[in-house]
Design a binder for these strands. Structure first.
Lengths: 202, 202
DNA sequence: GGAAACTCTGAATGATGGTTCACTTCTTTC
DNA sequence: GAAAGAAGTGAACCATCATTCAGAGTTTCC
């Protein structure tokens, strides 16, 4: 026995891996998936292209990890709000506002997560996360119906519609330069979502 | 002067071009953009790969033409209904039903137009057509507001939301095998859309 | 210090798939 | 029928990147 990774070495490698993921996320947020070559990502992290393969078996695996980390944060935040305190309708409204505000504050990343062209592996991951958003919304809609706050409806379909509607509304502003009327956009978006779920006008 | 295309020859060439577009559309509907290689498309049309370049300067140009033709038909049909007879709310409901029914009847193509991963040129075209859908919906929403049938709202945002919502609701069933409950889906979808625009419950 | 085991490097490799082109085949005109 | 010009062919070409790998540099442990 002549070599055994010391704890410090293990930590260093882990840190490099994390740094790589962080840098890759930045690159993707800036130039999109299609322009985020292994070389570009490695350069951004200050390592050689070949070294990427010490941490990930393939570019796709790295891309999936980048997507999962970033999208996972959003699902977590949204779930936190949607399952938090307040009436179902309040939670829905607040959840959408928080989601949209976060997206508008990090447009590049949001666009990458929501809509930017990506390799198949990332596309599959995106579908999976859309399903999670749907599930979160569907649960709130069901609770709203149970509480008599929302009219009878197919919660799954409304949830899918909310997911698509929010994405579409955000994507166009995401492509455009900084929107001066963020607040109006958020107000209209949440109002639309409440109508979509059938919440009575305030 | 020793050669000059005869009218019949011009027609023949035009027919070949049309046939190529038709076959390319079928291939895309069946296997998606990413699998629709020049060779596959040419094979399907019964010509050599090189011959494609007698009709289009690049694969991207052919892909864009395929997209425009197919998406243009849908925009036309939707516009026809949305600008047809009836109250704004009726037109909106009917338009969405027609759009969704057509999509469900040609799932492969609908998926290709709405969501399938595609090269940048097609992606740009997709954005453009989404804007057209939005414009059509926005006009109906405005008319509904003017007629006092819909509450005050930002028509552009509602239109974007409708576009995204319909796409999202359809895409999942589009991926799944034939839905036995098409009618229920259509009913829920139109009901959701009317709520989204703020039409009073029937 | 030195052998063993590992990490890092970046140029070479390889796969993919759009595009080109020398050549063949077909059309037109005289 | 023959020359001129165009369309059709498909194998070769080429550009793009992800991936590999032989060698250089580091770390570990005796």
């Amino acid at each position: 026995m002549a070599y055994r990774k010391t704890p410090a070495e293990i930590r260093r490698l882990e840190a490099v891996r994390e740094h790589l993921i962080t840098c890759a996320t930045s690159v993707v947020a800036e130039v999109g998936w299609s322009q985020a070559s292994v070389t570009a990502v490695a350069d951004s992290a200050g390592i050689a292209a070949g070294s990427v393969y010490q941490h990930f078996p393939s570019k796709a695996a790295l891309a999936v990890e980048v997507f999962r980390r970033a999208a996972g944060r959003e699902v977590d935040v949204l779930g936190e709000v949607l399952n938090g305190p307040g009436s179902p309708v309040e939670r829905l409204s607040h959840g959408i506002e928080v989601f949209a505000r976060r997206a508008l504050e990090n447009r590049g990343l949001a666009y990458a997560l929501l809509a930017a062209p990506a390799e198949p592996a990332v596309g599959a991951e995106r579908l999976d996360f859309r399903r999670r958003y749907r599930a979160l919304f569907a649960e709130v809609v069901r609770e709203g119906m149970a509480a008599g706050l929302l009219p009878s409806q197919n919660g799954e379909i409304t949830a899918a519609a909310l997911t698509g509607a929010i994405g579409e509304v955000l994507v166009d502003p995401l492509g455009a330069p900084a929107e001066s009327t963020t607040d109006e956009l958020l107000a209209e978006l949440t109002a639309m979502a409440l109508r979509c779920a059938g919440a009575p006008a305030t």
